[in-house]
């Protein structure tokens, strides 16, 4: 299938084998002429299967036999992420919550409660929504960093096709009490690197590191220690908003 989507303000033509890719991208379709195109092959799908099995082995869990059409969606996103780098855009794993025109990125190793924490936000603040629950694109434009919705959004698939300025990045840790504190970039960049999509090539990796470094110049970082109390949402939001420059 051939179709085009607009992602992070970039128009991308996709040539896919399976309809599942089109179905996933339905909310992001565009008629505009593409800035670049990606095409998948059966080899790309086999590569995703191999990678998925390797990751399962690395994490000590049984391999899952994913269907080809799902694996193709991963292959397409991998190709897109590699080609988005020249547009100053990169994938950082995490959940982005949007509220009142600003985006907050919560990142943490898998299983540390991103989904639970963002659910508390939705319960506490009815106007909030999940821009992307797992694999948002971050893009620099005119010196500002934006969080961009994408249809690739993890198990829950929560996403919305909007682009909003990123106000803060918050790393979640388990804690006995809910508290949040600012963190310096030099303390946090290893974790940011570990949460960012790593391209295979040297030039692409260099560009990715440059973009991560640039986040340290314009975004504030926080460490949030939280328990399973829904009040964690209020503590996080108030902590991140009180430092907002007027």
């Amino acid at each position: 299938m051939n179709f085009s989507i607009s992602l992070a303000g970039v128009n991308i033509e996709i040539h896919s084998i399976h309809a599942a890719v089109y179905d996933l991208c339905r909310d992001y379709l565009t008629d505009r002429s593409p800035d670049f195109s990606v095409a998948t092959t059966q080899e790309d799908i086999a590569f995703e299967r191999k990678k998925s099995n390797e990751e399962a082995a690395h994490e000590g869990r049984p391999a899952v036999d994913f269907p080809d059409d799902y694996l193709e969606t991963l292959a397409v996103y991998r190709k897109i992420c590699e080609k988005l780098l020249p547009y100053d855009a990169f994938l950082m794993h995490g959940a982005v919550v949007a509220q009142n025109g600003a985006a907050y990125l919560f990142t943490a190793p898998s299983g540390l409660g991103k989904t639970t924490h963002t659910r508390f936000w939705l319960e506490k603040y009815p106007e909030a929504f999940i821009l992307n629950g797992d694999k948002p694109i971050l893009r620099f434009q005119n010196g500002k960093l934006f969080a961009c919705g994408t249809p690739w959004a993890g198990k829950e698939g929560q996403n919305r096709n909007v682009i909003l300025p990123l106000r803060a990045v918050c790393v979640l840790f388990r804690g006995k009490e809910n508290r949040i504190e600012p963190v310096r970039f030099d303390k946090i960049f290893p974790l940011l690197i570990s949460q960012t999509y790593r391209p295979t090539g040297e030039a692409e990796m260099r560009k990715t590191l440059e973009l991560i470094k640039k986040t340290g110049e314009g975004v504030r970082f926080y460490a949030m220690f939280c328990n399973l109390d829904p009040d964690a949402a209020r503590v996080a939001k108030e902590g991140m908003d009180q430092d907002e420059p007027n």
């Binding site: 390797e54 690395h58 030099d186 960049f189 570990s194 790593r198 040297e202 990796m205 590191l209």
Partner: peptide, 26 residues
């Protein structure tokens, strides 16, 4: 790939083979 991140440096392996090493060095 080694990069000065503003005082400290990051080192990240590249290449298909390097994915066996999942970490990075500060």
């Amino acid at each position: 790939v080694v990069m000065d991140m503003g005082g400290d440096y990051s080192a990240v392996p590249v290449g298909e083979d390097a994915k066996k090493f999942h970490g990075m060095l500060k």
